[in-house]
Nucleic acid binder design. Structure first.
Lengths: 139, 139
DNA sequence: TTACTTGCAAATCCTTTGCGGTGCC
DNA sequence: GGCACCGCAAAGGATTTGCAAGTAA
């Protein structure tokens, strides 16, 4: 199953009405390993759909987030980035160039149990963001 | 040394010009264990300085952040929260009422080493945000 | 004294919303 | 054919900035 077929299937499965714009946005996010913001997504989709508006980009992104097909990364910057992989995973941020890469580290189950006992919260999950300097910026 | 003396000392030590507004903001953040946003800080400081403006609140908060006296928590909401404790520590967020509490968990040194080897990044630190439901919202 | 701060207001940035027309199911 | 979606433009909330007047060092 190629990516176009897969995005089509995902959208239908979640009961999201399929439009060419949404397909293109989801497909783009599944392709790239950068974590683009709305503006970057807009710029790319516009090469295929010259008339698309930024409002539609935001509408689509919000819908895809709500339905769990993508995730929003709202870590510190003034804007959000979007990640085509909805599964929980960590991110490493370069403090120099602001690049964000995925990191699949060990699960912190012990820590969650401990926190739950100490805090009284019912812990559902966590978000871990590692900070550092990427190889390209270390010169 | 009381809190007023301490904030005075901290400001001078960092070479920050001391103004009553800044002292009040820093003192307030050192006192409270909530993690207020700019608007809440504004509302509180205004009870002492009727004429203070929101612009000054933001200016002061940015300066205090830059100098490392407080930290900004920009986790997901449309606005930032501020924490009077600049030392690294984790936070637990209630997904229902959005309350944020501090959590001093075990350090993730092993995980940082591992991530550094696998990613090639020079890892400097991390931010961990636990999500769940606070005791008051569990009913 | 003099450079840094303040208060105010306008501006900016990112994101959401309202509306008339269109296209997916 | 109906309802959800689109593009557009205007509104919205949070934060920043410019400027004249005030104040800490």
């Amino acid at each position: 199953m190629d990516v176009t077929q897969e995005t089509l299937y995902l959208l239908k499965e979640k009961g999201i009405r399929v439009t060419p714009q949404r397909q293109a946005i989801l497909e783009y996010l599944k392709h790239v390993d950068t974590h683009p913001n709305a503006e970057e997504i807009y710029a790319h989709i516009r090469t295929k759909f010259a008339g698309i508006s930024l409002g539609t980009i935001y509408n689509s992104l919000n819908m895809l987030c709500d339905k769990g097909l993508i995730q929003e990364l709202a870590y510190g910057d003034t804007f959000s980035r979007f990640d085509g992989n909805p599964m929980p995973h960590d991110h490493i941020v370069c403090d120099v160039c602001r690049k964000v890469v995925d990191y699949h580290g060990p699960l912190l189950d012990n820590l969650l149990d401990l926190a739950q006992q100490e805090s009284g919260f019912a812990i559902k999950g966590y978000r871990l963001e590692l900070h550092g300097v990427c190889p390209a910026c270390q010169n």
